[in-house]
Amino acid sequence: MNKVVAAMVAAMVLAGCATSQQKVDPATVASFKPGVTTITQVESALGQPFQATRMPDGSQQLQYVSKYQEVAGDGTPTTGSRIPKRVEKTVSTLLTFDPSGHFVSASSNSKSKDNQWPSDLGHLNGGDVQRNGGG
């Protein structure tokens, strides 16, 4: 029974991750007016949050997580091609609302995951390459 519940919870969490891939536009967040914009208006503009938390004082926090790829800042191509390197970027945006459901503040942080290697060749293991003729 516990395994079934755990599997259902894991499926719901993964489904939540899959729906949170929408990129949150900073200009849209900047347009929210403290004391005026409501939770309903924010959800209408940004969609359903990745996570919603009600705090003990009655205030609420909505978290939006965006995960996407963009061209690396230096614009250098991947080794052996003209394709520019890409980095995976994760942006977390936290919106806070007062107990009456009106916007108070927003904060955001981002994390980039860059490939250490100039190309995927750096991820080869010893058994990935086969040599002809015993070399």
Rank of each mutant, 00 (worst) to 15 (best):
Q61P: 03
L121E: 15
A52W: 02
S119D: 13
T90A: 03
N125C: 13
D25H: 04
V4T: 11
K23L: 10
L94I: 11
V5M: 08
E70A: 08
V87D: 08
V65K: 02
G58W: 08
K33R: 10
A30H: 01
I83H: 04
L95K: 00
K85S: 10
K111C: 14
V87Q: 04
Y64E: 03
Q61R: 15
V65W: 02
Y64S: 01
R131D: 11
A45D: 06
T96E: 12
V29K: 01
Q21Y: 04
P34F: 08
P26E: 14
T38A: 10
D25S: 08
T90S: 07
G134S: 13
G133I: 06
S108F: 03
Q130T: 14
K111P: 11
T90D: 04
A7C: 12
T93W: 02
E88N: 11
V29F: 05
A27P: 02
Y68K: 03
A72K: 03
G73S: 13
P34G: 12
V91L: 05
L46T: 01
D57R: 02
V42N: 00
S20F: 03
T78H: 09
E70Q: 05
F32E: 01
Q51R: 12
S31F: 09
V129C: 14
T93C: 15
P34A: 07
T28Y: 02
L62M: 11
A27V: 07
E88S: 14
